Computed example of a mutant assay.
Amino acid sequence: MMSYLDNATTSWPKPDVVRETLAGFLATASGAPVRTGHRLARATWEAVEQARQRLAAFLGVADPRRVVFTASGTDALNLALKGLLGPGDHVVTTALEHDAVRRPLRALEVFGVTTTRVPVGADGTVDPDDVRRALRPNTRLVVVCHASNVTGAIQPVSEIVELAHARGAFVLIDAAQTAGVIPLAIDALGADLVALSGHKWLLGPPGTGALVVGPRIDPSELVPLRDGATGTESPDDAGPRSLPERYETGTLDTIGLAALGAAVDWLARTGLASTGERARVLTERLVAGLSALPGVRLFTPAQAASRVALVSFQVEGWRPLDLARALERDFAILVGAGLHGASEACRSIGAYPCGTVRLSPGWSTSEEEIDRAIAAVATLARAPQCKD
Results as ranks from 00 to 15, higher is better:
residue 154 I to R: 14
residue 163 L to V: 09
residue 371 D to K: 07
residue 173 I to P: 14
residue 192 D to E: 09
residue 27 A to S: 13
residue 373 A to E: 02
residue 34 V to Q: 04
residue 46 E to M: 10
residue 180 G to K: 04
residue 109 E to C: 05
residue 201 W to N: 11
residue 149 N to S: 13
residue 7 N to M: 10
residue 46 E to T: 12
residue 7 N to W: 15
residue 29 A to F: 03
residue 186 I to E: 08
residue 327 L to V: 10
residue 11 S to N: 07
residue 179 A to T: 11
residue 370 I to F: 08
residue 247 Y to L: 04
residue 278 R to F: 09
residue 161 V to Q: 01
residue 276 G to V: 09
residue 17 V to C: 12
residue 76 A to I: 03
residue 191 A to D: 10
residue 384 P to E: 01
residue 174 D to S: 10
residue 69 F to V: 01
residue 110 V to H: 14
residue 86 G to P: 07
residue 145 C to K: 11
residue 12 W to F: 14
residue 269 R to V: 15
residue 41 A to H: 14
residue 300 T to L: 01
residue 249 T to V: 15
residue 152 G to Q: 02
residue 366 S to G: 13
residue 92 V to D: 01
residue 363 W to L: 14
residue 4 Y to M: 03
residue 218 D to S: 11
residue 338 G to M: 07
residue 238 A to E: 14
residue 171 V to S: 03
residue 290 L to T: 11
residue 82 K to G: 01
residue 68 V to I: 08
residue 298 L to A: 01
residue 304 A to H: 01
residue 59 L to Q: 03
residue 356 T to S: 03
residue 60 G to Q: 09
residue 262 A to W: 14
residue 10 T to Q: 13
residue 314 Q to M: 05
residue 242 S to H: 10
residue 75 D to P: 03
residue 319 R to V: 12
residue 213 V to D: 06
residue 385 Q to M: 05
residue 122 A to L: 12
residue 367 E to K: 05
residue 13 P to N: 12
residue 229 A to L: 13
residue 322 D to M: 10
residue 149 N to Y: 07
residue 13 P to I: 11
residue 369 E to G: 10
residue 234 S to P: 02
residue 169 A to P: 14
residue 244 P to W: 00
residue 71 A to W: 09
residue 209 G to N: 02
residue 296 V to C: 00
residue 360 S to M: 07
residue 242 S to W: 03
residue 346 C to D: 04
residue 213 V to W: 11
residue 362 G to F: 00
residue 159 E to T: 06
residue 90 H to K: 03
residue 332 A to N: 14
residue 269 R to S: 15
residue 364 S to A: 15
residue 8 A to C: 10
residue 99 D to P: 04
residue 348 S to F: 05
residue 127 D to W: 05
residue 40 L to D: 13
residue 271 G to Q: 07
residue 58 F to N: 06
residue 321 L to D: 13
residue 128 P to F: 05
residue 289 G to D: 08
residue 380 L to F: 01
residue 173 I to V: 15
residue 156 P to G: 01
residue 92 V to T: 05
residue 231 G to N: 07
residue 31 G to D: 01
residue 63 D to V: 02
residue 38 H to Y: 10
residue 302 A to W: 00
residue 34 V to I: 11
residue 279 A to W: 13
residue 383 A to T: 15
residue 200 K to D: 05
residue 19 R to Y: 13
residue 62 A to S: 12
residue 368 E to F: 08
residue 304 A to E: 06
residue 311 V to N: 04
residue 245 E to D: 12
residue 192 D to K: 04
residue 179 A to L: 10
residue 379 T to V: 10
residue 51 A to K: 02
residue 277 E to T: 15
residue 388 D to H: 11
residue 39 R to Q: 08
residue 162 E to A: 12
